Amino acid sequence: MTTPVERTKAVVDTRDFLEMLANAEEVTIRGLLQTVAIGLLRHYPLNVDLDVSASAAPGIWAHPTAERPEGRATCTRVVRLFATRTDE
């Protein structure tokens, strides 16, 4: 069973991943990943939205925690690995 903290972390981490893709200097599939990421981010909730949702529905959402720079480094490594494999 997914807890409110796990659910919120998944949403925040996914948003961070999409932001990283949207701001990437190098895109392997001629802008496809970046275009999709920008489209998804247009309506993706911000931490303030999650915070309001957590106050209104604490059984579904948890208040987001501070951003973790080490999480972004992990996403960057995954994207670089993916880019390397698809370019071969």
Rank of each mutant, 00 (worst) to 15 (best):
A62F: 13
R7Y: 13
T65C: 05
P45F: 00
E70P: 08
L46A: 08
Q34Y: 02
L40E: 10
L50W: 00
A24T: 12
T74K: 15
R7V: 08
E88W: 09
A62M: 12
V11A: 04
E26H: 03
I38F: 05
S55M: 13
T76L: 15
H63K: 14
L21F: 10
T28W: 01
P4G: 06
E26D: 03
A62V: 07
A10I: 13
G71R: 05
F82C: 11
L32A: 06
I29L: 15
T28S: 03
V5W: 04
D87Y: 08
R15E: 09
N23C: 13
V27N: 00
T3S: 13
V78P: 06
E70L: 08
R42T: 12
A37L: 04
T65N: 12
V11D: 05
R15T: 02
T14D: 10
M20S: 09
P58T: 02
A62N: 09
D13R: 07
A56F: 13
Q34V: 11
V78Y: 14
A73G: 14
M1N: 14
L21K: 11
T14M: 07
F82W: 11
A22D: 03
Y44W: 15
A54W: 05
P45V: 10
T28A: 04
V48M: 14
R7L: 05
A62K: 04
H63D: 09
W61I: 00
T3F: 12
L41E: 05
V11S: 05
T84H: 07
Y44A: 12
P64L: 04
T28C: 00
R68G: 09
Y44S: 06
P45H: 05
N23M: 12
R7P: 00
P64G: 10
V12N: 00
R85A: 03
I60R: 04
L21T: 06
V27E: 00
A56P: 10
D49W: 07
E88H: 04
P64M: 11
R7H: 15
V27I: 05
T86A: 14
V12F: 06
D87I: 06
A66N: 08
L33S: 06
T8H: 02
V48P: 03
V48W: 08
R42I: 06
T8I: 00
L40I: 09
T3N: 07
I38S: 05
G39N: 13
F82G: 01
S53A: 14
P64F: 00
E70T: 08
C75S: 14
E19H: 00
L18W: 02
A73E: 15
A10S: 07
T74R: 15
T76P: 03
T65Q: 11
R72Y: 05
L18R: 00
E67I: 09
L50K: 03
D16R: 07
S53I: 09
M20Q: 11
T14Q: 07
V78R: 09
Y44Q: 06
E6Y: 07
T3I: 06
V79C: 10
F82D: 10
R30D: 07
D51W: 03
W61R: 03
N23L: 14
T8C: 03
L32S: 12
